[in-house]
Design a protein around this nucleic acid. Structure first.
Lengths: 149, 149
DNA sequence: TAAAGACCCTGTAGCTACTATAGAGTCAAG
DNA sequence: CTTGACTCTATAGTAGCTACAGGGTCTTTA
């Protein structure tokens, strides 16, 4: 079974460019090529790419995905480290949720400061934004980035 | 009152490079220079930069900050649009929180699949990650990025 | 046989909001 | 006069792609 990159992309629901990017980053090993220099994939590539995309949809970094792929590739070990990686990832998500809820509280407090259609000069929101008394910066590790659809 | 960029950075609690970056991006207008070509700032710059940093700590994009600065610079208007911008921003935060909670549910479900220290081959988590049946991609606009401390 | 269209190739630049260098110049204190 | 703290510009890097440009390949149809 030899499929070209477009078909692989369709089966894993991702862009062709993303596949080439993963190859460049070492998550997918360079596949064999056709006479016309087209990349040729088989079922194992489909499965591996789906694994990667699934991890990405769970918001893991490519480094985390690399680690998991490494575990997959050495089946002799036990999977305690897989569990640990996932636990750590869940914890990071929890931290982000907390940071976002804190952020929302700040935004709502700010929004309270102006409810009407006042003149810009007396707008409580703009004034609140100039006031730096609550200038707290969210905790580190609070950064998110999601795979796009 | 003429302060140099380092002092401005100290007062707004941000990096010198960030200030130069904001100038390049048009959020701060180029200040006057000293004989030795040093940037010289005054109180209005301090206030404007604090405004920007406050907005950033609330996770607004630089484009949103630009818009708010624009409103500030035209005090004749009323501030209905300021309220609208903030409402939209709050809504985006809510969407992100929901996406993250959904993500956490997925991760916890995955984590349930393996609790022991089994051999890698039979690890339920790695198997779950290969299975693409729940391959849902988080909603757009779910991306977060925070100002770092 | 030729041309059109769909697909593929490499390489590079762009996105956000900075951060981090390199290599040079300025300025005040000792 | 030298040291050290500060500043300047310009450029490259971060994550994870995405979007070209400028070509080549393959299949189908006229």
């Amino acid at each position: 079974m030899n499929i070209k990159i477009g078909e692989l992309a369709r089966r894993a629901e991702c862009h062709v460019e993303t596949i080439r990017y993963y190859e460049k980053e070492g998550l997918l090993s360079p596949p064999k090529r056709s006479g016309g220099n087209y990349r040729l994939y088989d079922d194992s590539h489909v499965e591996r790419l789906q694994f990667i995309r699934h991890c990405r949809s769970l918001d893991m970094t490519l480094a985390e995905v690399q680690t998991l792929l490494g575990y997959r590739d050495t089946p002799a070990q036990d999977c305690g480290e897989v569990n640990a990686l996932l636990d750590k990832h869940i914890q990071q998500v929890e931290i982000r949720v907390e940071a976002l809820l804190q952020l929302k509280r700040h935004l709502l407090a700010l929004r309270e400061k102006c409810s009407g259609s006042r003149a810009i000069e007396s707008c409580g929101i703009l004034q609140g934004l100039s006031d730096c008394s609550c200038h707290s910066i969210p905790a580190e590790g609070a950064t998110t980035s999601f795979v796009e659809a």
